[in-house]
Write a protein that binds this DNA or RNA. Structure first.
Length: 951
RNA sequence: GCGGAUGUGGUGGAAUUGGUAGACACGCUAGUCUUAGGAACUAGUGCCGCAAGGCGUGAAGGUUCAAGUCCUUUCAUCCGCACCA
């Protein structure tokens, strides 16, 4: 009898699939399409690791499943081959990156094949080849034409030792990754004129669309976070003094109602107003020194040393538009240029940071809110319980300073407040304590309960991050702008709560109500449309948004592999290179070291740099900045579809047919790459070149495989495991693939266990043996169809497996899919003991089993499929069909519970009526015992599950 | 600090979404067989207890006939973001 020998089987089928073109997609097929792949990776070194195996096996399983289900699948493969490692290797050894990369790719190909990946090799891409980057350059020029790629000055990390610019990820603990010894200098910042993508133009659209994506949830959250939208207002302040009387300054705030508490203004050191007017100040030297120092300081320093520092700009002031007060202007590095407008109206009475700053520099503090004031629509309308928590350190004889959460809670429950203090309020109380010391200034804490439906609104008004928590029964029904559950309001200023179902605004609250300087009418009735300084706030839906700054970058200059994008004409105006002159090919470079001025090594290749202006033909020079690696990967889903097409980046027809990608798997780049891809896709969608604004319909973020000791695999520890070693040790790729999918659901991080693999091998072997025995048995007996009386059992087992495996694969719960197959195999072995083995039912069951296991163990399945008498490949159009009739049970087992505890089990025929089931349950000896002669209070029958008796 | 998750046997992990907790494996224990192996097969294996029985899903409360699952509170771990005005 044939024995299971993965080594022979696997290479045999790999060759056969290649020569048959089994996985080559017909992109024009009429079949339903399914497009999926894992993030392509950077070929570095010569060996892939278990992480790669997992990364690629996940989509491979899913696509094989789809292919078996009659889909035309496209499983592309490629390499993201521009990157630093090859470049560093070049700097060190002089080996050109191309050479290193090619070698690595060759080795990767071999390993992907060994894993049995069903990918379409005919459309392989390699992002560092001119035939690819030509179109990356084209993408750039399109964005440039649309004004979405632009230049501005920007500070970059700079290592004074290697004289190069560094990317964020090359800076560790404030030091250059190459120079991180104790004696090495900290990195600094260097201002360079750089390219940026205007991704913020799409930020709202992207944000808006995020919720509806079928993506791993936390990735969606991370993306929203990354975009970092806050809503608030821009307030314009008039400058005064130092010759700035004509100028104004814009400030962004999310808490505009605190404007009366503004006692000074703070500018970021980079703010243009500082540059323009500070020189006229008496203390200009001091300002200059501070500014220079702040700019030199890295963000890391700023973070490490959170003590606030700053200098005033003597002689400069601004006028508060709300009350006409003149307030001083300061420069401080706790204000970031990248966020909002780089200027802050400081309200020390309300903001911790401003408070700290005001305290340090003896600036005035004005509290803008009065005690015990709160306007609530609900308050008036329904007179709910509504309480205002008071505000002094002494409260009912308790001292807040010493109050522990529980005591606080009790305190509120006991009387004065009569409301449960949310723990956030509590945290807030405690944290404020530090800044103010006693007495605690102002606290509003309000809960509103409508009498009947228990709608509760807790508005934590005092915190800048006030939040709303509204419930109705079990369901959260209220929110603000986006009508979704929100837990947090950035503003806390105006809260409009809507009923999700009726959309009706049922509660409007203003953060703090009565202000000190007679502005009641401004806020009392929410009619503040005429006020210039908050003109943008007619209602809550018109809040303006700002985004976290400094995001959209592009130009990592060290990376010589990168791509050159535009040329400059004689006037140094950037001119996009016309399509017909692309690609701008990278020159041969002898010396890969950067030029020391913050430019890429390209800058040293004079005869390449000095090229005529592509437009006028006059003298010009080429841009030597290179694009970030994320650009290459932002559009590759489209390129896969038209790999090799040298007339266009991609065929829009194909893109409309195949995009968005149905399934995209990855274990890294939750924000940057995925957001850039969304940005690009959205842009090209607007250009009419793609049929959908989103690149990935489903994005699955898998978790890492850990080392057996629960730590991460790492090169430095040398604890990596090479999949090839595992395969070659005799277990084979099928066992490896199946095992990786079996350890845990793919999105759960779990350790590799060396003892696990043999068990999977055993499982596969058991299937193999079963088929071989069946084959022998049926040939001996001459005929396959022999009734044995156990066919129903055999088929039930098989069809149960079909159901479970199909559902689980769809849900990407491969571990339970595999366990369902194991159960099936175990059952079949049991049946086999007593059955004559060869029958039509056996043939069907084994066909089913082999088809189910095919996505996981493709080689073995293919081999067994032939052994079972089939001629074609199992991997195309062969998924077993579920027939529910085999699953029907004649009898059912029901648990009998008494007061929630299982006391007996009864077996009833499947069509038994409720009455007889209850009677049977009560008749049980053990049930009678527990009833002890009493009649049950209640008997509940849960269909098909259990009978619950209440005594 | 803010945001997001996760907590179930000795281990990886199941649990039909409120219905018999621990599927499927690993490991362990005992046994069978033998060409003595890191093989295969059989049985057992949540905890306490000789047993009847009791206890059990990080902890504490609650809702329910019934809670790993829902609600409060709390602890721990992990991951993002971080002086975001």
């Amino acid at each position: 009898m044939k024995r299971y020998s993965p080594k022979d089987i696997e290479t045999k089928w790999q060759k056969k699939w290649d020569s048959d073109g089994t996985y080559v997609a017909d992109l024009k097929s009429d079949k339903p399409t399914y497009y999926g792949f894992a993030m392509f990776n950077y070929p570095s070194g010569n060996s892939i690791h278990l992480g790669h195996a997992k990364n690629f096996t996940i989509p491979d399983v899913l696509l094989r499943y789809k292919r078996q289900n009659g889909f035309e699948t496209f499983a592309p493969v490629g390499f993201d081959s521009f990157g630093l490692p090859a470049e560093n290797f070049a700097i060190k050894t002089g080996t050109p990156p191309r050479e290193t990369t090619d070698k690595a790719i060759e080795s990767y190909r071999k390993q992907y094949r060994a894993l049995g990946l069903g990918v379409d090799w005919s459309r392989e891409i390699d992002s560092s080849l001119p035939e690819y980057y030509r179109w990356t350059q084209w993408c750039f020029t399109q964005l440039h034409k649309a004004g979405l790629a632009y230049q501005k000055d920007s500070a970059q990390w700079w290592c004074t030792k290697c004289k190069t610019v560094l990317a964020d990820e090359q800076v560790f603990s404030g030091k250059c990754w190459r120079h991180d010894g104790p004696d090495d200098p900290l990195v600094t910042k260097k201002t360079l004129h750089q390219w940026f993508f205007k991704i913020t133009d799409y930020a709202d659209d992207i944000l808006e669309a995020t919720d509806d994506l079928n993506w791993t949830p936390w990735v969606k959250t991370a993306q929203k976070n990354w975009i970092g939208r806050s809503e608030g207002a821009t307030v314009t302040y008039q400058l005064k003094g130092l010759g700035a009387d004509e100028a104004t300054i814009d400030v962004f705030t999310t808490a505009y109602d605190t404007i009366y508490g503004t006692t000074f203004m703070v500018l970021a050191p980079e703010h243009p107003v500082v540059k323009t007017y500070a020189q006229f100040a008496d203390n200009s030297d001091e300002i200059e020194a501070y500014t220079q120092d702040a700019l030199r300081k890295s963000d890391i320093d700023r973070e490490a040393n959170k003590t606030k520092t700053g200098v005033p700009i003597d002689g400069l002031s601004v006028v508060n538009p709300a009350n006409g007060n003149e307030i001083p202007v300061w420069v401080a590095d706790y204000v970031l240029m990248g966020y909002g407008t780089g200027a802050v109206m400081a309200v020390p009475g309300e903001d911790e940071r401003d408070f700290e700053f005001a305290n340090k520099y003896q600036l005035p503090i004005v509290y803008t809110t009065k005690q015990q004031e709160f306007v609530s629509y609900q308050d008036i309308k329904k007179e709910p319980k509504s309480y205002i928590v008071a505000n002094s350190a002494e409260f009912n004889g308790m001292n807040f300073a010493e109050a522990k959460p529980k005591i606080l809670k009790k305190l509120f429950e006991d009387g004065a407040a009569q409301t449960t203090v949310n723990y956030k309020v509590r945290d807030w109380l405690i944290s404020r304590q530090r800044y103010w010391g006693a007495p605690i200034p102002i606290i509003h804490c309000v809960s509103c309960f409508t009498p009947d439906d228990a709608v509760a609104a807790t508005i934590d008004c005092a915190d800048h991050q006030g939040f709303v928590d509204i419930k109705s029964g079990k369901k959260r029904i209220l929110t603000r702008k986006r009508e979704e559950n929100i837990d947090r309001l950035n503003s806390g200023s105006i809260v409009a709560l809507r009923d999700l179902e009726t959309k009706e605004v049922i509660h409007v609250a203003v953060r703090s109500v009565e202000f000190f300087e007679g502005v009641d009418d401004l806020y009392q009735n929410s009619n503040y449309a005429n006020q210039t300084f908050c003109r943008e706030f007619k209602d809550v839906d018109e809040l303006r948004s700002v985004y976290d700054g400094n995001r959209p970058g592009y130009s990592a200059q060290l990376d010589t592999h990168g791509i050159v994008v535009v040329s400059y004409d004689t006037l140094s105006k950037p001119v996009a290179v016309p399509d017909d002159q692309l690609p701008v090919e990278l020159p041969e470079i002898d010396d890969y070291r950067p030029d020391g001025e913050g430019r890429s090594p390209l800058a040293k290749v004079d005869d390449w740099v000095n090229a005529p202006c592509p437009e006028c033909g006059g003298a010009g020079r080429r841009e030597t900045d290179t694009m970030d690696g994320y650009v290459c990967s932002s559009w590759y889903p489209m390129r896969y579809l038209s790999a090799g097409d040298n007339t266009q980046a991609w065929d829009p027809g194909l893109a409309k047919k195949w995009m968005p990608v149905d399934f995209y798997n990855g274990g890294d780049h939750a924000t940057a790459h995925l957001l850039y891809a969304r940005f690009f896709t959205r842009f090209f969608y607007e250009q009419g070149l793609i049929g959908d604004p989103e690149p990935f319909k489903q994005m699955y973020f898998h978790a890492k495989i850990l080392a057996p000791d629960g730590t991460f695999f790492s090169k430095s520890k040398g604890n990596g495991i090479d999949p090839l070693e595992v395969i070659d040790s005799g277990y084979g790729a099928d066992a490896l693939r199946t095992y990786i999918m079996f350890i845990a659901p793919p999105d759960v991080e779990s350790p590799w266990n060396n003892d696990g693999l043999p068990s999977i091998y055993r499982f596969l072997n058991r299937i193999f043996v079963l088929v071989q025995e069946f084959k022998t048995a049926s040939s001996e007996q001459g005929a396959v169809s022999k009734e044995t009386g156990r066919d129903a059992e055999i088929l039930k087992s098989a069809h149960k497996a079909i159901k479970k495996v199909t559902n689980d694969i769809e849900a990407i719960k491969f571990n339970t899919a595999i366990s369902a197959m194991m159960t099936c195999v175990n059952e079949l072995y049991k049946i086999k003991e007593q059955d004559r083995f060869a029958s039509a039912a056996w043939q069907e069951a084994l066909d089913v089993l082999v088809q189910l296991v095919a996505p996981f163990a493709p080689h073995m399945a293919e081999e067994l499929w032939r052994d079972l008498g089939h001629e074609d490949s199992i991997h195309v159009d062969h998924w077993p069909e579920l027939d529910e009739q085999y699953l029907v049970e004649d009898t059912m087992k029901l648990a009998v519970q008494i007061n929630g505890k299982v006391r007996a089990e009864i077996e009833m025929s499947a069509d038994a009526d409720e009455e007889s089931i209850k009677n049977e349950a009560l008749a049980q000896e053990n049930v009678q015992k527990h009833l002890a002669g009493n009649a049950p209070k209640k008997v509940i029958y849960v269909t098909g599950r259990l009978v619950s008796v209440v005594v």
